[in-house]
Computed example of a mutant assay.
Amino acid sequence: MGLLTYSPSRTRIKICGLRTPADIDAAVQAGVDAVGFVFYPPSVRSVSPNIAAQLISRLPAGIDAVGLLVNATDAECAAIRAAAPITLWQFHGDETPERCREIAQNDPWMKAARIGKQFAFNDFSLQYRDADAFLLDALVEGYGGGGVPFDWQEIPQTWVSENAPRVVLSGGLNAHNVGEAIARLHPCAVDVSSGVESSKGVKDAALMTQFVQAVRVADAKASPQ
């Protein structure tokens, strides 16, 4: 189905920062809709294009392989495209809409927004109106994976209602708080990284399963009986 197939009764799930075959197998077994590969060398979760290609080969059809970029150069993008069959691009840096389109070519893409006080939601969604999704993340040092949630009340209810089919919620999610996030915002998808790790950059299969189960419980509560 893929990450951005919107259904009000089923929140899609992405686990980001996978680096090993065991990570991939555990995520697939848990029932995710997408896995993310970090192509940003300063990150402890970074992988090379060749490693990503090997990991993507383990994915069954229908699960998106998401490439996370942070201000990537043309050479870096070319190396990724040559090796790894990415199906969805995620831009976490200062990429302009034009740069996002240039890199993604005809593939779907989403732009990360780092939510702080007074974030201009309407300006952001207008500027990146061609994006297939808006990924809402916490404003932390670095680019994602900080394990810090932002105040969901900062998101205007009218904005999230209008954009729900394109909202991917990230930033400090885990099995304990994702249900509240879904109940409040009803996003298209949720994205987790540090919330399913036993230590920084090290994924935990049990935590992945617990996260997916928590999402499904939240979906069941939100569905009309």
Rank of each mutant, 00 (worst) to 15 (best):
59 L>R: 13
41 P>A: 03
83 A>C: 07
46 S>H: 14
9 S>D: 15
150 F>H: 02
194 S>L: 05
61 A>V: 15
139 L>Q: 15
208 M>R: 01
100 C>A: 01
189 A>G: 00
108 P>L: 00
100 C>I: 04
198 S>T: 02
142 G>T: 09
176 H>S: 04
34 A>T: 07
159 W>T: 11
111 K>C: 02
121 F>K: 09
205 A>V: 00
109 W>M: 15
201 G>V: 00
175 A>N: 12
126 L>E: 14
2 G>I: 13
1 M>W: 10
70 V>K: 13
125 S>P: 05
133 A>E: 13
155 I>T: 01
28 V>G: 02
89 W>L: 10
162 E>G: 02
42 P>K: 04
66 V>W: 10
130 D>G: 11
197 E>I: 05
176 H>F: 07
203 K>R: 05
156 P>T: 08
186 H>I: 03
179 G>C: 10
179 G>V: 02
171 G>K: 06
147 G>Q: 03
222 A>P: 00
142 G>N: 09
203 K>M: 05
173 L>T: 06
38 V>C: 12
180 E>C: 09
34 A>H: 06
152 W>S: 02
197 E>A: 01
68 L>T: 03
109 W>Q: 14
185 L>I: 06
12 R>C: 08
197 E>H: 08
103 I>H: 00
224 P>E: 13
19 R>D: 08
120 A>F: 08
51 I>N: 14
128 Y>S: 08
196 V>L: 05
74 D>A: 15
190 V>P: 04
80 I>K: 02
52 A>S: 14
19 R>G: 01
134 F>P: 11
162 E>R: 13
155 I>S: 03
64 D>Y: 04
70 V>M: 10
158 T>G: 12
46 S>N: 14
19 R>C: 04
93 G>S: 07
195 G>W: 10
182 I>Q: 07
65 A>H: 04
172 G>W: 00
93 G>N: 02
46 S>Q: 12
201 G>M: 04
77 C>D: 07
85 P>Q: 03
31 G>T: 04
26 A>K: 02
43 S>F: 01
188 C>Q: 04
112 A>F: 11
102 E>H: 14
143 Y>A: 11
188 C>R: 01
97 P>T: 06
145 G>D: 02
37 F>A: 02
220 A>W: 14
208 M>Q: 05
171 G>S: 09
76 E>V: 03
83 A>R: 13
186 H>E: 12
64 D>N: 06
157 Q>Y: 13
25 D>C: 12
44 V>C: 09
117 K>N: 14
106 N>V: 11
142 G>F: 13
97 P>N: 11
169 L>Y: 02
149 P>D: 11
23 D>Q: 09
27 A>M: 02
28 V>Q: 09
81 R>W: 15
207 L>I: 01
216 R>Q: 10
58 R>K: 13
133 A>K: 14
190 V>E: 01
85 P>A: 02
75 A>T: 15
155 I>E: 05
23 D>I: 09
13 I>M: 06
111 K>N: 01
158 T>H: 14
48 S>W: 03
139 L>M: 15
112 A>L: 11
98 E>S: 13
54 Q>A: 13
224 P>L: 15
205 A>F: 00
59 L>M: 13
210 Q>M: 06
74 D>L: 12
55 L>M: 05
213 Q>H: 10
78 A>N: 06
53 A>I: 12
59 L>E: 11
110 M>W: 11
57 S>T: 06
38 V>Q: 12
26 A>Q: 09
27 A>D: 01
